[in-house]
Amino acid sequence: MDATLGRLHLITDTRLGRDPIGCVRAALAAHAAAGADVRAVTGPLVVQVRVEDDATDLDAYHLAVRVRELCAAAGATCLINDRLHVALAVAADGGHVGALDLPVAAARRVLGPGAILGATARTAGVARTAVADGASYLGVGPCYATTTKDGLPAPLGPAGLAAVTGAVLVPVVAIAGVTAARVTEVLAAGAHGVAVVGAVSGAADPGRAVTELLRELAGATKREHRIGDERGHRADGEPARDGVR
């Protein structure tokens, strides 16, 4: 897995009454205030700029410019959802495409070989194809029920998530309905990290919500690494040779 890809992905919420820039500021501040040990495990915060489908390109651009500036100042990663021309216009670190957006291979040609490119996948077959076509990481979901976005298919749950994580070697990010309380479960299913919207934008204190997510991600990651190390050794202490993680 790509250790440089952060484990916490914050997706902007531009629905009526939400404050996307305020949430991004709070998240970046919480990440900066987290202990060095937590940041070392969770990596840089990833902020994905996503706007409503009926938003204009100009609206998306203005939001992306502000988010990109905040991320650059804080050392965070900035990605743009769907609108790859906006990603190029603001010099974002990359983008993310869904099932109804540009095909992954085309998106890779648009962004170039060095950009981060995320792709949405729900099955092992789609996941493998996306990786072969140039995806840097996969967003997998909905993992749980969510009210953030309409028209989503049935939740995959941990078992569905594990079916995808077991099929690819790139980082898998679990999305939809993920809360701090569910972080351990999704990482145990093989996820590299989580993407959240309402867990932060709908929180009374977005900064505290991010702090809790980072803490859970750091703790769960350490536990999974410990379990992997234990599985990688025989009972007599000799390294295993069966390739089990």
Rank of each mutant, 00 (worst) to 15 (best):
113 P>W: 13
113 P>L: 14
113 P>T: 15
113 P>N: 15
115 A>F: 02
116 I>S: 02
117 L>S: 05
118 G>W: 05
119 A>C: 06
120 T>S: 15
120 T>L: 04
120 T>A: 12
120 T>R: 13
121 A>M: 10
121 A>F: 06
122 R>T: 02
122 R>E: 00
123 T>H: 09
123 T>Y: 04
123 T>C: 01
123 T>V: 03
123 T>N: 12
124 A>R: 10
126 V>T: 15
127 A>Y: 03
127 A>G: 07
127 A>W: 02
127 A>Q: 04
128 R>F: 03
128 R>E: 09
128 R>S: 12
128 R>C: 11
129 T>Q: 15
129 T>C: 08
129 T>L: 06
129 T>P: 07
129 T>R: 14
130 A>L: 06
133 D>G: 03
133 D>L: 00
133 D>T: 01
133 D>R: 06
135 A>K: 05
137 Y>C: 05
137 Y>H: 14
137 Y>W: 14
137 Y>E: 01
138 L>T: 01
139 G>W: 13
139 G>R: 11
140 V>I: 11
140 V>Y: 08
140 V>C: 07
140 V>L: 06
141 G>E: 00
141 G>T: 07
142 P>W: 14
142 P>S: 07
142 P>C: 12
143 C>L: 15
144 Y>A: 03
144 Y>P: 01
145 A>V: 12
145 A>H: 14
145 A>S: 11
145 A>E: 08
145 A>K: 13
146 T>F: 12
146 T>N: 02
146 T>M: 10
146 T>W: 12
146 T>C: 08
146 T>A: 05
147 T>W: 05
147 T>V: 12
148 T>N: 04
148 T>V: 09
149 K>G: 07
149 K>F: 04
149 K>D: 02
150 D>Y: 00
151 G>T: 06
152 L>Y: 14
152 L>I: 08
152 L>Q: 13
153 P>G: 02
153 P>C: 00
154 A>M: 03
154 A>D: 15
155 P>A: 10
156 L>Y: 04
156 L>V: 11
157 G>C: 07
157 G>S: 07
158 P>W: 13
158 P>M: 06
158 P>I: 01
159 A>H: 14
159 A>L: 09
160 G>Q: 05
161 L>A: 10
161 L>R: 13
161 L>S: 10
162 A>E: 11
163 A>L: 13
163 A>N: 08
163 A>F: 07
164 V>S: 09
165 T>I: 01
166 G>D: 09
166 G>M: 08
166 G>W: 04
167 A>M: 11
167 A>L: 10
167 A>F: 03
169 L>M: 10
169 L>S: 15
169 L>E: 15
170 V>Y: 01
170 V>D: 01
171 P>M: 02
172 V>H: 11
172 V>Q: 13
172 V>M: 09
173 V>T: 15
173 V>H: 08
173 V>M: 05
174 A>R: 14
174 A>S: 14
176 A>G: 03
177 G>R: 15
177 G>C: 09
177 G>N: 09
178 V>E: 07
178 V>W: 05
178 V>F: 03
178 V>Q: 13
178 V>H: 12
179 T>P: 01
179 T>I: 07
180 A>E: 00
180 A>V: 14
180 A>M: 09
181 A>G: 13
182 R>S: 08
183 V>H: 10
